[in-house]
Design a protein around this nucleic acid. Structure first.
Length: 230
DNA sequence: GATTGATCATGT
DNA sequence: ACATGATCAATC
């Protein structure tokens, strides 16, 4: 059968080294080339396709859990994150980690937190993110797998405990993106009118703006430098 | 220019 | 509704 040169989505990688090898094989390619390989259309810009790069990489690498609360590579326990890189070589955006259960976060310890679990092993795939480049022209960079060092974990834990503590006290509405050295809390919603269940300082349920944890670009920039010193 | 708060699309 | 994938764009 003639598939017009369109490749099939690969199955899940059987090991971390296979996954990394697949990702390395993509490095240097433009997003147009990767999309073409899988017969996917490239949007003119990302305004209405913000998840395009991440979804394309998931597809090309054989990620298993789409839109489910599981690691992208379930069997390997590895999370995939694309990392948009600006002209200066540093990340130009923060990295979303997970949404926050405002009702229950007070009852969970750092060790059992979604943030710790999500970040236990991550495949970062840098991709050019300069808005002056068309989406198709942006190239995939050299991937790397990361697990938090003891220092990383202590620092993330410090931020998490501060932020989770504020939410746990029922003061989620008092949180701004200014808080947290490496990890921050920002809205994660359809729009500013979106609401989900929260608990206020008196323990009363209320309709809260949905929020999520994000890694600051300065933090992922530090990871990049540690893996690719220059 | 960097950052925060707002927003977009899609799948379960 | 809420999870996934994030970037946009107003504001500092």
């Amino acid at each position: 059968m003639d598939l017009g040169g369109v490749a099939l989505r690969p199955g899940p990688p059987e090991s971390e080294s296979v996954l990394l090898a697949r990702a390395e094989e993509l490095s240097g390619l433009s997003l147009a080339r990767v999309a073409e390989r899988y017969g996917r259309a490239v949007p003119p810009d990302l305004r209405r396709a913000k998840g395009f790069v991440g979804s394309l990489l998931e597809h090309a690498l054989g990620a298993t859990a789409s839109s489910r609360a599981a690691p992208d590579f379930e069997a390997l326990g590895i999370e995939l994150k694309s990392l948009p890189i600006g002209k200066d070589g540093t990340p130009c955006e923060s990295t979303f980690v997970c949404t926050i259960d405002l009702v229950r976060i007070a009852d969970v310890e750092w060790q059992a937190s979604l943030v710790k679990r999500k970040l236990s092993r991550v495949l970062f795939v840098p991709v050019e993110g300069d808005r002056a480049l068309s989406v198709g022209a942006r190239r995939v960079g050299t991937p790397f797998v990361w697990s938090p060092s003891a220092e990383d974990e202590a620092a993330l834990r410090f931020d998490w405990e501060e932020l989770a503590g504020i939410i746990g006290r029922g003061d989620a509405e008092g949180i701004t993106g200014h808080l947290g050295r490496h990890l921050q809390v920002r809205p994660k919603a359809k729009d500013a009118s979106a609401r989900r269940r929260g608990v206020d300082a008196d323990g009363m349920p209320y309709a809260a703006l949905p929020r999520g944890f994000y890694l600051r670009a300065s933090f992922t920039g530090k990871l990049l430098l540690e893996h690719f010193p220059r």
